[in-house]
Structures are given as C-alpha cells and as structure tokens.
Design a protein around this nucleic acid. Sequence first.
DNA 1: CAGCCGTTGAGTTT
DNA 2: AAACTCAACGGCTG
Length: 636
Amino acid sequence: MAPRVLYWFRTDLRLHDSPALKAALDLDPEALYPVWTWDPHYVYHAKVGPNRWQFLLDCQSAISDGLSQLNSKSRLLVLRESPLTILPKLFKAWKISHLVFEKDTDSYARKRDEEVLAKSKEMGVECIVKYGRTLWDSDDIVGINGGPTMTTTQLQKAGQKLGPPPRPIPAPTSIPPPGDLSLKNVPQDKPGPRYFNADQNQTNRSSEDATYHAGLRGPKGDFSVPTMEELKMSAETPHRGGEKIALEILDKVVKDKKYTATFSKPETAPTDFQPASTCLLSPHMHFGSISCRKFYWDVLDVVEEWENSGREATEPPCSLTGQLFFRDMYFAAQAGIGTYYGQTLHNPKVRYIPWHLPSKHQPNPDDPRKSLSIKGTYYVDSEEAAEWFIRWREGRTGFPWIDAIMIQLKTEGWIHHLARHAVACFLTRGGCYIDWERGAEVFEEWLLDHEISCNAGNWQWLSCTAFFSQFMRIYSPITFPQKTDKEGNYVRHYIPQLKNFPEKYIYEPWKCPIADQRAAGCMIGKDYPKPMFDWKDRKEICIRGMKTAFEAGFHGNDVEVINGEARTILKGKLGDNVKGDIKLAGNPEFNNNQGKNRAETQPTVSKSVKLPTKRGQTTLDMFVRKKVKSEDERHS
DNA sequence: CAGCCGTTGAGTTT
DNA sequence: AAACTCAACGGCTG
C-alpha cells in the first residue's frame, strides 16, 4: 500500500532545505497532508504580542501558497486543536500511514512530541523525525561535548567532529495532493480550563471573542490560516514573514560580497535604523522560513571566493557564520540542560543572584524538587525595583538610549543585538538589579525572533549568570550609543519629544539647562521623564552585589537556593558590604537640579561606596590570590 | 616647548 | 571573580 503521509509543520515554515519534508517525499506517498495544529500552549499559555502573531500567520500563508504552487490541490491545513488530541483522530479519518516532522529540542516541545510519538506508535503509524532547525543535531552536539555547550569553542569543536553541516536541499518541484479531507465523526476537543482561563494574550485583543472554538477547520470550514482580524489583534511592525521574503533578504545579503565576507558583528551599529546594520533574518530563522544551513553555505561560498582572490574575510565568532554558531550553541545548551534551561531555580548552570526583583520561579517550601511558579501577582522584594521594572518595560526610564530601544522593541518587534545587550545589562547587573527572567519574559512577548534557547541564553549571558562572567563590564547608557550615533538620530526617531533636543544633552537630557529645554520644546520631568535613578550609583551597587554573589557561588540547583536560604545569606553579606541603601529615586532632592549646580543636588551614596583601588594594589592582590589558589590546589 | 612617560579615569560583545 | 585598554593629562626633561 502506498504511504499516506501527514506532514506536521512546526518550526519549519519553508519548502527549501527541509530534511523532514524531503524524508516525507522520499516515501513517494500517494497522499501528503500538510498540517499545522494550533497548539493551545502557543495560543493561550505563551504570551505572544500581535507583531509575532502576524509574522507567524504571514509564514503560514506563504507556505500554504507555496504548497498550492507545487500542486493545485495542496495547501496548508490548519487544525484548531491540540496536536495531542487531533493527530490521532486525523490518522484514523485520513488513513495515515506515516507521520513526519522536524525535530524540536525545546523542552516543552520535546515533552509534547514524546507523547505524540508514543500515541502514533500505539496506533501503528510510522514516525520519521529529522533535525533541520540547526547546523548540527543539538542532541549529537550534547553527546559529543559531554553536556550542554556553554562556549562557542565547545560548539565548534563538537561540530568539527560531526563534520560540516549538510549542504541545503533544493525545494521540491512537485508534491502529491492530500487525499480525502472529510472529517466525519471527528469532534473538536476544546482546550480545558487550564488553557481557557489563562489566555495570556487577552490584553492584546480588542474583544474577547475566542476564535479557537470556531470549529476544527476555522470559521469558513476550509482549514484556512487564521487572520489578525480573527484574533482581534492588530500589528504595527514593518517586518513581515514568509519564505519568499526571507530568501530575497538572503539573496540581497550574499550579492553584497564585501558585506558578507567582511561582516563583523561587534562593529555593526545598534543605532542604525531604516535600514538596520544587520540583515534581520533572525525572525525567519525562528519560524524556519529560512534554513540556517542555506544561510551558512551561501555565506561560506562568498567567503571562499573572497579569500581566493587574496582578500581577508572575517572569521567566527564575529563573522556571519559565527552568529550561527552562537545560535547552535544556545540550542545545544537547552538540549543538554533540559526543563530548567529558561530559569535559575534548579538550573545547575545558572548562577544565583539575590535580585531586588526576583522571578516568578520561587522555591516551593512544601516540595523542594519543585518550583512555585507565581503568575499575575509576583513576589515583590522592593517596591522601588518593581517600579523600575515597569518603567523599563514601557520605555520611560528617563535614559533616552534605553527608552528608545524599548519603544522600538515594542512597536517593531526587532532590535539590534547590541541594543538588546544595552537594555538587558541595564535591567539586571548594570542598573536596576532585577532578575533576568523578568526581562526575558518581556522579550519573549515582543520579539519577532523570540527563540527560548537564544533568548534565555542571552539574558543569562548579559546578567552574568551563565556563559559570561565579567560583571564589571557595564554598558553606559550615555557613552555607548555615542560611539555610533553622536547626533542621537536613533533616539530622536523613537522618542519624538526629544526631536529638537540639543545634541550635547541628547543622551543625558536632565543635564540640559532649562532655557535650552524650553527652546527645544521638551521640558525634562514633564514632556520626557527625569532619570529614575543615578546610574553611576546604581552601577556601583550592582557590581558590589554581583561580587558578593560570585564569591558565595550559589547556582540554581544548590540546596540553599532551592530551600530559599541563599537569598537570606547573600542579603546579609550584601548589607555588610554596601553602605547606604538603594533608595535613590525616592529622594525628593534627587534630580531636582534643573539649572542648578549639579554637584549640590546629587546623592552622595557613591562616595561612601567607592573603594579607592590603586593599580599596583590590584595587581598585587591578583598575585597573592593566584598564589593562594595554587597552594590550595596542591593541598587538595 | 616638544616629546616622553607614568598616572588616572572612563568605558567596556562574543 | 574589581580586568584591561585607551586616551587624556600633567610633570619632567633635554
């Protein structure tokens, strides 16, 4: 009997270079059912902003059109039900012999897929799962590395052992049609109260009409891709999804041979906009509308040509291919760490820091093996930090560089990698001292390219809790953007109130004399907020906190972290080290310095905090410490 | 007074 | 586990 294949689209909304799709077509099936299941986890549990919804729907429409072009009877069949319940019903109704899909190593997806595979096996449906989302199979990388990859060197070494990533597979030129599409005696399972009562995206909807229940095949009964109107959402991003758009971007990139061969990530400007300094393929990577291996080989071919003509090309980690190595590293990190990858609690690789505003994952006092996830009302350690968090999220911290980035993030869904660094550092170890998980949640909602592996990993990196540890390297919200945008054009674009502000004060407008503020038509404290704290003081306090936490060396799976003691221990130690408390913004004197001599009104906390460190002393300290360490090693 | 050199402070992807 | 770089500064010297 000729195979009847259900091809389950998930992370692979493309036709080119899809190993799973190739495997499906290699079966030479008589019928191919291209299916998307509307997973309630995504619909209700995951907080997804309108911009990303639109991008997903763009990608789905594009794949549906692409399938129709290969066979007029084919299109994407969107089914509005959890895959766990609908797939078994489809196997029966459509007499499916094979289930084929691309491997997904995200923790929640893995769990879901295990259930689907078990059920399929039970029903006698043969399953084919192919990796296709990364350069190398993340599980293979973990196996060779002997655990999660925490550096790009580890990733590259493991990758070398596996050999170069496969060359891209061309898109198919024809596909079989689906067979009978009737759904006789197939009722729709509605999601249980667990999902129904937890619509995380309600605030983004203009009305509460749930479209999920519009029948298995959607409101028109034709399996069509949902629309933004149906979701009662509207998006404002200029960035749109779809395989064709993705391939056009890549094509344009590799046609500019100099750009491709000499690309150096650290030298791209986070302040560039219209156009940005990088190619914006990350959202397409996320939805699979571009293959990372096609990107890799298209770039490498240009690099080779460039080098053959005697010119020098950039290399990983700065080069374009280097960026893909970071991506694969984060994927293999999650694949190796598992369930607790996206949080500190229970995560052995993540350092514990007693942030002023902790995450929703709290230790469960009744069951130390579990965490207590607090939704809605978070535990608030510091009212002040809670306010800082809200102001950071909404882009009204009073630091124009930070605020402009957050506004671009919310409205457009994409910000430059270094801009992500700037706001992440500012929220965590370089300003607010707020848990990185809080920030990661905001990115998760608003980023078009949100990828749990890369997002959680990058937040761990920036907060110095994993991957990176040099907590004294703090981005200045004032001088960092000045390197690439002295005039402040980026800030002026995203914060129109500051459009005519004098260049000299564009990144620190609170220092601008009143008369100049009036002339620029923007009064600080009225039209644009005063800074919510003195950044230099906050920086000192943060570094002290980080130092204390690093010395104690608690990690997410340590017993003291799980039973909640680590917090008390560290706060006790911190109290000894930090003179003066963190209440700076509450000081009415603070920043009320318009037109006055600034020195008179500045808080003086940092003066008591600062320890004079002489250069020679530091070096001596280092020497002594190293010596002591080596003696310790000899004894042990 | 130019030029050298040590000090100092500020800033900081991987 | 408070490093390292780099530019600016200022004192000294030929």
